[in-house]
Design a binder for these strands. Sequence first.
RNA 1: GCGGGUGUGGUAUAACGGUUAUUAUUCCAGUUUUCCAAACUGGCGACGAGAGUUCGACUCUCUCCACCCGCACCA
Length: 487
Amino acid sequence: MHHTLIGRSACVYNYNVRRANCKEHFEKNGGGLYNQTNMANNEVTLETLTSLAKRRGFVFQASEIYGGLAGFWDYGPYGVELVNNLKQYWWQKFVREQPNVYGIDGAIIQNTKLWKASGHIDGFNDPLVEDTVTRKRYRADHLAGVDTNDIKKLNELLKGKKSPDGNPLGEVRTFNMMFKTYVGALEDEDSVVYLRPETAGAIFTNYELVRDTTRSKVPFGVAQIGKGFRNEISPREFLFRVREFDMLEMEYFTRPSLAEADFKRWKEFCWNFLLEIGVSKDKMVWYQHKDDERAHYAADSWDIQYKFFGGDPKELWGIANRTDFDLKAHSKASGKDLSYFDPESNERFTPYVVEPAIGLGRMFLSVLDSAYTEEKVGNETRIVLKFKPEIAPVKVAVLPLSKKPDLSSLSEKVYKEIVQKTGWNIEYDETQSIGKRYRRQDEIGTPYCVTIDFESLEDGQVTIRERDSMKQTRVAIADVINHLKPS
RNA sequence: GCGGGUGUGGUAUAACGGUUAUUAUUCCAGUUUUCCAAACUGGCGACGAGAGUUCGACUCUCUCCACCCGCACCA
């Protein structure tokens, strides 16, 4: 035949020789795997990605059957696998592989004093008034020329006053970014608590306990993965701006004199981490915050931005030099001295903090966006999520060529063997044609398919099909796992 | 929170104030020794929610909800 053979196994060859209609099918479809695979497109729109995410069980709208709830999303079966792999990979790199970084898992609700000391209660409770004509918003305390969050007082002070455009003002309202709830039976002012707006709080309050129990010296780091909550005014753009989200965050406590060098080191580290999990380098850029853009605690702040959906770069990973702001604030508010005595230099100082913090949803989106690929195979287009094998939600799919009982039972054995020896999330699929099943796995980014055919019953060999190259290799069943290890 | 746009099976869509709501695809079952979304047969599955107008509303009106875009917000 005149076909170019690409990674064609002996098995495939035999089939084609034996079955003429199989060959016809390939030709009708433009040659199938006999043709070169051409890159068609790897730019993806928000619409394409959201519908793929829903269609294949990565992300669903929260409470969908009740009409949803703005700013909240649920991860589906494949989404949670991907998300767990990302968390695990982050934990491996930021905690386990770092000799002086330790993990904690803090409570979501903390003593309200913590948020007062950290500046979040003042920083999050902006009293705003609206110009009733232009609809522009102003800080009520700024217009009134006072420093207070007291709504009653501000309303009195602003009575009869006009906006800078000369229009009447509306009522003063507080725009509170923190979710409020109550602890205990009584819902009064004293029982008010907040869902944490960032995870770092618990790290600062546990800073001395961690240092003590791990017998650490500065510099050392404390890392945490957990939920944070922000009552965003308008959640937007799928998972990009949401009201409940996981944060992956580390506070690296260091000497003030080393802060700049450590800051630089962790910046590099984060950048490389993203490359390792498959985020496209050509869609990543650095951005340094300007003076007026920085958070109240930060001395220097850089973002790794990502060009989501082919658009303008937006924040993906923030790395901030928080200086000694937090430890000093908590020292003052709690009355506990959080300074550190350095036995080497015989100096006492309050450590500086370098903080790399990334939202899981944004990491998830950037990985999905980077992995999304459309390729021409013959006349058809296949959608492939080219996840790195380490983070792919499904590592292997076991596919019997037909539903015949003897093939099924052998395939189930292979399935059990792989899942029990590796602990991977793998899948078994015997419905519809083999080509369709390859497409299904391509679409969720499974790096390997193991196909069991009728010859496997005789020679004890199976076919391993690779996602990216579509290459097929024939190997002995006993040897399969060795061929599946992420290269 | 303001302004604009959009809501029909899982996904993508068509039409209409009036029979059983169109089509494709996905999905499921079956046939086929089925290796890259083959074919054939059969099947499940939808008008975002609530009010109102009307003999009758997926269609018209109102309210709400969600999503997208622009502002504002993003400590």
